[in-house]
Amino acid sequence: MTDIDEHEQGERVRAWLKNNGSSLITGVALGLAALGGWQWWQNQGELRKVEAASEFLAYTRASEGDQTDKALAHAAAISQNHPETPYVALVALNEAQRLQADGKAEEAIAKLDAVPTEHLDPALAELLQLRAMRLLAGLDRHEDVLKRLDAQPLPSYPGVAGELRGDAELALGNREQARQAYEQALAALDLAAPTRGIVEMKFTAAGGRLPETPEA
């Protein structure tokens, strides 16, 4: 899987649900296929699928309409009635974003950490950890970021993981470790990746040397 922004997977599903509410099952099926939730979708009964998808659609509309109380009620219903679905993770990602915007980063981290991951596709479970690590970095809790990366190295997002490790090491004054981490990130990133230029700058700032570009 190529590295993506931590919200991109959730946005794929939310966009489908918003634009295809009248074709709910089709929209959700395609969205979950992009999320790695296709196996879950296939294994559920039709009624169960529609109930879970409808609840998430209602949550999404309330959230986008700034109806916080209503959105939280739908979020609670999803957590209670459909805990085995990918929607629990998508709600947590969205709620974490809202909490961060309200200056409640610690609560956002707790929200992400509370999601059960045993039913999730590994890439989606890693996305929760990735978002939590970014929040920890924003709180200057760099040692905690490194501990999490050691415990859960995020194999689905090697470029992002390398950059996170490099940022944490550099913030702690470990320049050589940071250089090595950025080098690993660059090795994992596609040449056309939108974040590659930023990682290259971090790599050179940490003492790395980029290969010379052959003259045309």
Rank of each mutant, 00 (worst) to 15 (best):
D3Y: 00
H7R: 13
H7T: 04
E8V: 05
E8R: 06
V13Q: 07
V13E: 05
R14W: 03
A15F: 11
N19H: 13
S23W: 07
S23V: 11
A29L: 11
A29T: 09
G31N: 04
A33L: 09
A34K: 10
A34D: 12
G37E: 05
Q39F: 09
G45F: 06
K49Y: 04
E51S: 07
E51D: 15
A53P: 08
S54W: 07
L57E: 07
A58R: 12
R61P: 05
A62Q: 11
A71R: 09
A71S: 12
L72R: 14
A76C: 12
A77H: 13
I78E: 10
P86H: 02
P86A: 02
V88E: 06
L90W: 11
V91E: 07
N94E: 15
Q97A: 14
R98E: 10
L99C: 06
Q100S: 13
G103I: 06
A105N: 10
D113A: 14
E118T: 14
H119Y: 09
H119A: 14
D121F: 07
P122K: 02
L124Y: 04
A125H: 00
L127T: 12
L128E: 01
L130D: 01
A132K: 03
L136A: 10
G138I: 05
L139M: 15
D140N: 15
D140V: 08
R141E: 15
S156N: 14
G162C: 05
L164M: 15
L164N: 02
L170Q: 13
R175G: 03
E176S: 05
E176F: 04
R179F: 03
Q180G: 04
A181L: 04
D190Q: 09
A193V: 00
P194H: 08
R196E: 01
I198M: 12
I198K: 09
V199E: 03
M201K: 15
F203P: 01
F203S: 01
R209V: 11
L210E: 04
P211S: 04
T213A: 14
A216Q: 10
A216M: 06
